[in-house]
Amino acid sequence: MKTIQTIAIIGASGNMGAAISKSLAKGNYRLLLCANDLNKVQAVADEIIKTNPAASAEAVDCSVDASWEADIIISAVPYAAEKEVAEKIREVANQKIVISIANPLNETYDGLVIAPDTSAAEELQKLLPNAKVIKAFNTTFAADFATPVIDGKQAGAFIAGNDPEALETVSELVSTAGFNPIVAGKLAVSGTLERMQLLLIQLNMKYDYNWLAGWKILHQ
C-alpha cells in the first residue's frame, strides 16, 4: 500500500487553489488547506467533505505548520504574493516538493511582469534553494479541473522540474486531477509554459472560450 501523502495547499480559497484542492481530494491524499481567511478555506474543506465523505481535507490557519506537516506543498497564491509565502515556509520546505502554479501576468493580462530569461518557477526556486520546485497546473484554467475532458478530449497538463523523482510524484497528482501529465523538461522550461498560458488567456478573451480551454499535444 502506498503511504498516504500530505499535501499543503497555500492559497486554497482562491479560484485555482480551491479547484486544485477539490480535484486532488479524489486521490489518496491528506489535504491541508491554508489561506489568510480561515473561514473561506474552511468552506472549501467543508464542501470537499460534503461531496466526498471519504476525503481527508482540513483547514489550517498557518502555512508554516501545514508545510511542516506536508510531504508536498502547492503554492497557489498569485505571483505577487509568492515571495512572502516562500520566506515564511523556507525552513520547513527543505527538500520537499513545492509546486509553482503561478503565471506572472500583468494586471491587464496582456504581458508578463517578469524578465524574459526567467520564470515564476525559477524565481521561487531561488527563494527556496533547498526545495524541489516543480512547475505544474499553470497551463490549466480553474474551470478545467471540474471538466478535464473538454469536447471529448482530455486536456494535457505540462510539468517541468529538475528532480526526476519529484517529477514522477507530481505526474501522479496531475493524473489524479484528471489531466494527461506531460513532462516538458527541466525547470528552465517553465518560462515557456508560463508564456503558453499567457497566450491561452489572450485567446480565451478574444474567442470567448468561457475559461474552459486547455492544451493538447497531437502526435502519432
Partner: peptide, 13 residues
C-alpha cells in the same frame, strides 16, 4: 541543506 523536517500527528503513518 539535505534534511527534511516533518511533523506527524498521532496515529498518522
Amino acid at each position: 541543506a539535505y534534511l527534511t523536517p516533518k511533523k506527524l500527528r498521532k496515529r498518522q503513518y
